[in-house]
Design a protein around this nucleic acid. Structure first.
Lengths: 192, 192
DNA sequence: TATTTACATGAACACTTGTTCATGTAAATA
DNA sequence: TATTTACATGAACAAGTGTTCATGTAAATA
């Protein structure tokens, strides 16, 4: 337990620092001084700086996929599925804001072959979202927009949350955020 | 003219490379070998690696502000203003996809005091968009969503363009993209 | 008690980084 | 023709990088 606690605390501190400075800009010595320990000591916790990034990224990536698969397999309408996708993103933003910011900003720093693996997972996720939207369009529930554009525009509406919620405390009630974004996505800005 | 041509070509090549690898990951030696020239030669064009990034970022930032100010000062409806903002983003994406991607991805690599200046410009821009949306809400043209959320969600819908359009040729007709995104933003996904 | 385990240390490594220097050349300008 | 200008070169630098090493300690386990 104490073993885990120590490593976990290291991982948490690192995550925060990497978010502030960026992965490339954060040196092992930065991590060490932020943890009040010696540089070499860090290698008691991790194999390499790269593996640290990999741990974070594939960690949340898995969480997203797990949630997504649950949603897709459930017997609910396309509209409800999309609502749940929005809810999942906001949930994860509240619970793991730093990991989410990494997912958006730092995945480019992965190296092959992990980079390809990650991109594949990313594409798979996007395709699952695309499928939900496609179903909705075919059922006449969603407007028949270009599928690619609709999917990526939708995903984008969930992305600014990460940019805004790193470092700052989340002021607004998550449920309220969810309500607002759902309304934007489903009904748009205009009244008519 | 030949002076400008040479420097411009250097700037264009650098821009592409920095987009592929990221600013931090792109070394002066990378630039040199990509340009088939010696490392030292690069410093005939630029003062420092940092100044290179600054040139790019403040360059497009200015373009955005210029376009935005024209829109804001024109005597048209809030709805029309928002449409023009969408058009501006897509226009710039088509004309300067690499600069735009930098604007989104690499501004964190600026150093003080340029970083603060950039963030201030960024905030100013976002506030101008916010004002347009606020006007629309007050006039009853736009749905009364939370202003912050509506603004950033709107801006996000224009951001994925950059991610998707670096490196790849833009397949879809810009006018069609504009039409689709405008529809998404104004009317949302749902039919009802 | 003996031995493993978890964590800590500081020096050293091999390498990469941005940048500068002194020098050179070929064309444009005066 | 003389001189400035634009561009090119290769070596060198000082600083910073991730990582490893041999060694140490204090507590948990056997």
């Amino acid at each position: 337990m104490s073993k885990m606690t120590k490593k976990e605390r290291f991982l948490a501190t690192s995550l925060k620092l990497i978010n502030e400075k960026g992965f490339k800009a954060t040196t092992i010595r930065d991590l060490a001084s932020s943890l009040n320990c010696e540089v070499a000591n860090i290698y008691n916790y991790i194999d390499s700086k790269q593996s640290l990034l990999e741990t974070y990224l594939f960690g949340i990536s898995n969480e997203f996929h797990f949630a997504m698969d649950t949603i897709i397999d459930s017997k609910i309408s396309s509209e409800e599925k999309l609502k749940l996708i929005i809810r999942t993103h906001i949930d994860l933003m509240v619970k793991k804001p730093y990991e989410l910011a990494l997912l958006v900003n730092e995945w480019r720093n992965l190296k092959e072959p992990k980079l390809s693996t990650f991109i594949a997972e990313k594409n798979t996720y996007e395709n699952k979202v695309k499928t939900v939207i496609k179903e909705g369009m075919e059922q006449g529930v969603f407007r028949s927009l270009d599928l690619e554009i609709a999917t990526f525009t939708f995903l984008s509406t969930l992305r600014w949350l990460h940019d805004k919620n790193t470092g700052y405390p989340i002021k607004m009630d998550p449920l309220e955020i969810e309500k607002q974004i759902t309304q934007f996505v489903f009904s748009g800005l205009c009244i008519d």
